[in-house]
Design a protein around this nucleic acid. Sequence first.
DNA 1: TAAGTAAAGGTCAGTGTGACTCTAACTGGT
DNA 2: ACCAGTTAGAGTCACACTGACCTTTACTTA
Lengths: 230, 230
Amino acid sequence: MTVQTQATLAVSTVIFALRPDAESDFKTLWLPLVRRTREPFLDQWALPGGGLPADEELATAAARTLRETTGLTPKYLEQLYTFGDPGRSPGGRVVSVVYWALVESGEAALAVEGGNVEWFPADRLPELAFDHNRIVEYALWRLRTKVEYSRIAHAFLGETFTLAQLRDVHEAVLQKPLDPANFRRTVESSGTVVDTGERVAGARHRPPRLYRYNDSVRSVDLGPLGPSIG
Amino acid sequence: MTVQTQATLAVSTVIFALRPDAESDFKTLWLPLVRRTREPFLDQWALPGGGLPADEELATAAARTLRETTGLTPKYLEQLYTFGDPGRSPGGRVVSVVYWALVESGEAALAVEGGNVEWFPADRLPELAFDHNRIVEYALWRLRTKVEYSRIAHAFLGETFTLAQLRDVHEAVLQKPLDPANFRRTVESSGTVVDTGERVAGARHRPPRLYRYNDSVRSVDLGPLGPSIG
DNA sequence: TAAGTAAAGGTCAGTGTGACTCTAACTGGT
DNA sequence: ACCAGTTAGAGTCACACTGACCTTTACTTA
């Protein structure tokens, strides 16, 4: 006796990784897309996602469909927006709860590339199915303007990292060079990272310190539920 | 032949207005709640909202249900978050796309108060139906921390306003006093308001200028679609 | 006409940031 | 064994922004 609306509920995920890019001075943001295997938009590229099962939490469904289609496990996952225009999908109406996620480079390399999954640079995408181009556009904007992006940058990195690596992430997201000295000053005084005491060996220069993300400094802009995946 | 999930889709709206408050030095945020007329949570207070009709845009449905139950037409309406925990509603699963809105004081006074609609101060709410307390909490946080809050403050005011009125809004949202001189400097140099050339008559002091919101300076954080109601 | 009040315009000191310089510490090549 | 090259990492300086505070202006009411 539940009221049935005629809309289908789906979840999708925009997930970013960082890759070197011949076209840019910096690393750039890439994202995996999935080729559609049925109508509508047969054979076109689309965001990974799927229908919402009856008893599954939204974020969980997003993470699961992402894992099933691409093999990726994001380090950061947050709700982005819900798209529900009648007419955004030919055929029945689809309301999509879209998540955005970040994955570290090592993990990204393990993705099940080939076949129906392929990585694309975020600012040079093909024409996607549905309104997915607009969705990616918005996710990019959110990533770049997120006040707290300095707190989530480490999601692109491993457990420990050098300040140069962290700076690389920021430069990639913002697509502009950052002064190393100023960057160091800002990050160190913000308290978001902790010196592990260790250093990287085997470099051809002074060995840089290794830092770890400071968990005790919690970000605030994580939605009402916090990040769904740690 | 559409895939039917077993979830019901609904929209709700958290809408704020500004009111004088005996408990506070500043005006405070108030919001209208609706008494439920059926199970679950019969007779408890809840956010205005309703089911999503098959062919209605999400924001439009939010605005319509708000108007139908409270008589309010918001000046600002933006998507807040989508809540979809299985178990957030006893009975069938409900996925709620929640909007948050602002209404100017004059409009707020016209609301169909009494009966099943009543205004409550945002920080002293009764126990609400479903997870609505948490939703209001999050909407409050969004309002207060919104980087662009200076751009939406005028949604509480009429077409023209004095800087003192605008300052009142900011003080109410932030619940702390602001230096009039510094406030003026910041606002004037930001370009968000325009001097109309007119002044308010009949005050018991130097007559203040009337300002108008500068439409050409558009906010950026309006979601992928921009504000749904102008 | 004096008193009271808020608008409106200013000063000043502290803070954070960008641009830049300089030194330290390592490696690889000769 | 030493020099050249490289990056880490510390420091300096000027400038913009902000909070606190002061002064003047313009109006109303008693």
